[in-house]
Design a protein around this nucleic acid. Structure first.
Length: 997
RNA sequence: GCCGGGGUGAUGGAAUGGUAGACAUAGGGGACUUAAAAUCCCCAGAUCGAAAGGUCGUGUGGGUUCGAGUCCCACCCCCGGCACCA
């Protein structure tokens, strides 16, 4: 067998492709376009890793496939070259970042080429190169001129280690995303991009893109839309108003105090009225020093200070309520002030508890209670009702209830006692014997009182279920529906489920919405499936003790005393429901009352977003300089376009000082004075590197244009990106910013589409062989270059694609590379046996099936199954001594996007003048897809009992006859009477027999 | 807590509601070889059985269906995002 010399083959073809500019995208081509893009890499000193290879291989396969399908494909590569690692390296070694960056780019380029990736290198860009960042700066000025970039003093995130400000998106759990240092808050004047202007579009347009659901969800979370109302609270005795934002205006009647963020500007205005200014100032100072983390995640204890001397007026109740400042209210969100409703908000409840503030319930859910104390009412009710009817009254609810309770009052009463006296025990036994139930074990004496207590719970509808009667008393009228008590008796033969279903049908609810109270452990067992957690409530004052009920129910669902029911149902309720204690709005649903209550107090409905403007200034060197200058009076001026690129000076010290290294550049200062006049000074910050990387996909359409960031017609030709592949770590940062740039450019008329990336996929992380993350410190990193050396690029590509679905995390396994390498060797072996032979019918059929499924799999980026299909096809061809040429060549073409080098080589060896990449993609012949015969399974009563081989055209009769004749099947059919038989052509034969027993 | 995505052999993973475990890796047996590697052939979910064959089996419990990994309901666990956001 021929030796697989991957080094020679791969080098040969890689050089040929580069020499021929084989993958250059033609702007002028009349073919339909596809734009296939990788998230361009940061050219780090450590070179390419296996994760890069995964995504790049996927887009490469897709691009090569699309070219063979007849598309003109734009598949470019470039460098996200600005950023901290190069600068930090410069701080350590004093080697300029420009130098290390270009060196790293060299390494990346040769590594990428060694993988046979089909990039259009004529379009290569680097964000650190002046001909690129000129346009980054131009875009900054464009946004500035259109009010989308502004400079403002604000409380910003500051990383003390990296000595720079950070965007909100770059703060993870209160720490710097890059270095993990705790982020502190600083008041600084900084540049922002007005991304919030597009919040609604950024949210709504997610509907239209083919992106992973998780990524869309993460963006929705980040944008954080919430709909509510803004309502003004007047400060008593002044004209001052505090405006609050709330999503629950329906709870306005329950607002018992206001809380302002400590930074709230109105505090200064109100200070004349505040009598405890010292305490207020102290609290504000204390808040200011806290890190974001201390103030949010870590701070679970509520702190705050009352603004003494002032009170706000609740516009609904007209009551005067106290005003506080507390750091649990954030100044940046909403209006920086809230109305606190401790009865219906967890945080307000915590604060109210800490400061002993009044709690007023204004919302309750509609509650449905079913009490089933079988023995309690059973015969009692029947007896009472029978007596009642006998006296000539109709069996209506009220009368029945009265009768029942009267009867209950007249019963001998027993207080539940842990050690009942012998007399009591004897009496109970007597009753138990007589009625066959444990009725007297329940606390009879208090039963009616208990029901009266329950009735105090608002919005409650109650059913008391009893057994032992043939009668079922329905709620007679709307009137009785409003009266919660609903007494029912059922025949003993009715099952629990039937009783509950009957009641719930009357109420028009799902049993899962009802609470079921029982004193029986057996009921709990029986009804667990019918009621969700927390809806089944044990009453431990009856026959069954608390311990016994706690064996089958969560502790919180077992009541020891009937008064516990208040704790259970009168506590914090944060959901929707029906209003109570709310003046004219009492009885309305909270959903409906949101608008009506807001309007009644002159508030406005308002939508708020969690998204904040994008802070883009960085006090660092290795980035695109912000092209702004200050006149001697300190006014801002944009650098005129003719001076772009606004060059990054090179006479700088890299040591971080908390100020941009550019501040000390003599060259920059002199340049500004020379261009603008004495006393003029530059803005010395650079832009967040995410600015550079948020528009690069436009530049690839027209990378060398010196007149404009990209020609309109060329953008029209190539954009939007049809497939974008890159790491899931960019779900909110890069992808959100890129969408913002797209929307900004669209709103300014530069482009006519609203979403930059039509389809997006994230390759899953490749873990180390030990299942952990690859990391230098763990020493478990796999270097793709080593793998290419040992097994070849085709093997590496194939292996990474064969590992599993593209988008899931999966561990590396060196042994498995050998598997795909063997597969390629098998292909070489097949090539050596190619002959002008005919393929037989099954092979022909398999070939067309393979075309069909490999095509579909590549379209869906399911490369793992595409490869397995090719293995099946190759294994089939391996059965031939003389491999049919046509079938083999089809296999090569199908394999060529995945393993380009070897397929090119073998294609040439088998006598083709043109490269295989120029072949057209095969089309399956539909008539040859199906085989002449099919093997289908036979089921009897759902179990597979055998299989039969049939002609593909077999009718149901023929199929069933064949199955009945099958020995393994017939013996099962003989066990009973055949009642049903189904043949699903090509799939299954299914019999149902009824047992003869 | 809220929002997303998952849970299938020893392992990576297949499976338009139709014979669960394709394809591959590791493993077992055999052929070739002085031997080993490579290659080729066979076996391979668990369990009972000498075998034929039976039973069980896709996180758990229910349901729909002739038939459920797949659909519905509830629950458990893992991963990712958001979170004092009013």
């Amino acid at each position: 067998m021929a030796i697989y010399d991957h080094k020679r083959i791969e080098k040969k073809w890689q050089e040929k492709w580069l020499r021929e500019n084989a993958f250059q995208a033609d702007d002028a081509s009349t073919k339909e376009k596809k734009y296939v893009l990788d998230m361009y890499p940061y050219p780090s000193g450590s070179g390419l890793h296996v994760g890069h290879v995964e995504g790049y291989t996927a887009t490469d396969i897709y691009s090569r496939y699309l070219r063979m399908k007849g598309f003109e494909v734009l598949h470019p590569m470039g460098w996200d070259a600005f950023g901290l690692p190069a600068e930090n390296y410069a701080i350590k070694t004093n080697v300029p970042p420009a130098k290390t960056t270009e060196e790293a780019i060299q390494t990346f380029t040769s590594q990428i080429n060694s993988l046979g990736l089909s990039y259009d290198w004529s379009r290569e860009i680097g964000t650190h190169r002046p001909d690129y960042y000129k346009w980054t700066q131009w875009l900054f000025l464009l946004l500035y001129k259109n009010g989308l970039a502004y400079k403002q003093k604000a409380k910003v995130n500051w990383c003390p280690k990296d000595q720079t400000v950070l965007a909100n998106e770059q703060v993870v759990d209160g720490n710097c995303e890059r270095c993990g240092t705790g982020v502190i808050q600083k008041d600084l004047e900084q540049w922002f991009f007005r991304i919030t202007k597009f919040a609604e579009e950024l949210l709504a347009d997610l509907e239209h893109v083919n992106w992973p659901e998780s990524t869309k969800a993460a963006q929705r979370n980040w944008i954080g839309k919430s709909e509510g109302a803004e309502i003004d609270f007047v400060i008593a005795g002044t004209d001052e108003k505090i405006r609050v934002f709330t999503t629950r205006p329906d709870t306005l009647y329950g607002a018992t105090y206001l809380v302002l963020a400590p930074e709230h500007p109105r505090i200064d205005v109100l200070s004349a009225h505040i009598t405890n200014l010292d305490a207020v100032a102290a609290y504000r100072a204390q808040t200011a020093t806290k890190t974001e983390l201390e103030r949010t995640a870590l701070a679970k204890e509520k702190t705050g200070v009352q603004l003494e001397g002032i009170a706000a007026i609740n516009p609904a109740t007209k009551e005067q309520i106290p005003v506080f400042i507390a750091d649990y209210v954030l100044s940046q969100y909403g209006t920086g002030a809230i109305m606190a409703v401790p009865a219906h908000d967890e945080r307000d409840a915590d604060f109210a508890k800490a400061f002993n503030l009044p709690v007023k319930r204004v919302v309750d859910e509609k509650k449905y209670f079913i009490f089933d104390f079988d023995g309690v009412l059973g015969d009692t009710f029947e007896a009472a009702l029978a007596a009642h009817v006998a006296m000539g009254h109709s069996p209506d609810l009220e009368a029945a209830r009265e009768a029942v309770l009267k009867y209950a009052h007249n019963k001998p009463r027993h207080t539940r006692d842990a050690n009942p006296s012998p007399e009591v025990l004897a009496e109970e036994r007597a009753w138990t014997a007589r009625f066959g139930t444990a009725m007297l074990q329940s606390d009879w004496k208090l039963f009616d009182e208990f029901i009266r207590e329950v009735e105090k719970i608002p919005n409650t509808q109650i059913a008391i279920v009893s057994s032992g009667s043939e009668l079922y008393v329905k709620p007679a009228s709307e009137k009785t529906r409003l009266n919660p008590t609903h007494v029912m008796a059922f025949e003993t033969s009715h099952s629990k489920e039937e009783k509950i279903e009957t009641i719930c049908r009357d109420w028009g609810i799902d049993p899962k919405q009802a609470y079921y109270f029982t004193d029986s452990k057996a009921d709990v067992y029986e009804l667990k499936g019918m009621f969700p957690e927390g809806k089944l409530i044990g009453c431990a004052w009856g026959f069954v003790g608390k311990e016994a009920l706690e064996e089958v129910l969560p502790r919180s669902s077992v009541l020891e005393n009937y008064a516990d029911i208040h704790t259970l149902f009168m506590g914090l309720h944060t959901g929707d429901g029906l209003l109570i204690n709310s003046g004219d709005f009492t009885g309305a649903s909270s959903a409906a009352a949101k608008r009506t209550i807001t309007e009644s107090v002159g508030g406005v409905m308002k939508t708020t977003y969690r998204l904040r403007d994008w802070l883009i200034s960085r006090q660092r060197y290795w980035g695109a300089p912000i092209p702004m200058v200050y006149d001697p009076e300190g006014n801002l001026h944009p650098v005129p376009e003719e001076h772009l690129p606004w060059a990054l000076p090179t006479d700088v010290e890299f040591k971080p000082t908390g100020e941009s290294p550019m501040a000390k550049s003599k060259e920059l200062r002199e340049r500004v004075e020379k261009l603008f006049g004495p006393g003029w000074t530059p803005d010395v910050d650079t832009m967040d590197t995410f600015v550079c990387s948020s528009w690069y996909f436009f530049r690839f359409a027209d990378p060398h244009n010196a007149e404009v960031f990209a020609d309109k017609e060329k953008m029209k030709r190539w954009l939007p990106v049809d497939l974008y592949v890159g790491g899931a770590e960019h779900t909110v940062l890069h992808l959100l910013y890129a969408r913002f740039f797209t929307k900004a450019l669209q709103s300014l008329g530069f482009i006519d589409f609203v979403e930059p990336f039509t389809m997006l996929r994230h390759p899953g992380t490749i873990l180390a062989e030990d299942g952990r993350k690859m990391s230098k410190s763990l020493g478990n990193v796999v270097n793709p270059t080593d793998v290419v050396d040992e097994y070849g690029a085709d093997s590496l590509r194939l292996y990474e694609m064969f590992m599993g679905p593209l988008d899931v995390a999966k561990p590396w396994n060196t042994r498995n590379i050998l598997g795909v390498r063997r597969f390629l060797e098998k292909i070489i072996a097949l090539a050596s046996r190619v002959a002008d032979a005919e393929a037989d019918e099954p092979t022909e059929s398999l070939m067309h099936q393979s075309i069909e499924s490999v095509t579909a799999d590549i379209e869906a980026l399911k490369f793992n199954t595409a490869i397995s299909q090719l293995m099946i096809f190759a294994n089939k061809l391996g059965e031939y001594k003389e491999v049919p040429r046509h079938a083999f060549e089809t296999l090569l073409v199908l394999l060529s996007p995945l393993a380009p080098h070897l397929t090119h080589e073998l294609w040439e060896q088998t006598g083709h003048a043109d490269d295989i990449r120029l072949s057209s993609w095969p089309v399956a012949d539909q008539t040859k897809l199906s085989k002449a015969s099919v093997t289908v399974g036979v089921q009897v009563n759902g179990k597979v009992r055998g299989s039969v081989t049939l002609s593909a055209e077999a009718t149901q009769e023929e199929a069933l006859a064949a199955a009945r004749a099958h020995e393994g099947v017939s013996k099962w059919l003989a066990l009973g009477r055949e009642v049903k038989a189904v043949y699903v052509p090509g799939r299954i034969i299914s019999f149902v027999v009824e047992s003869a027993v």
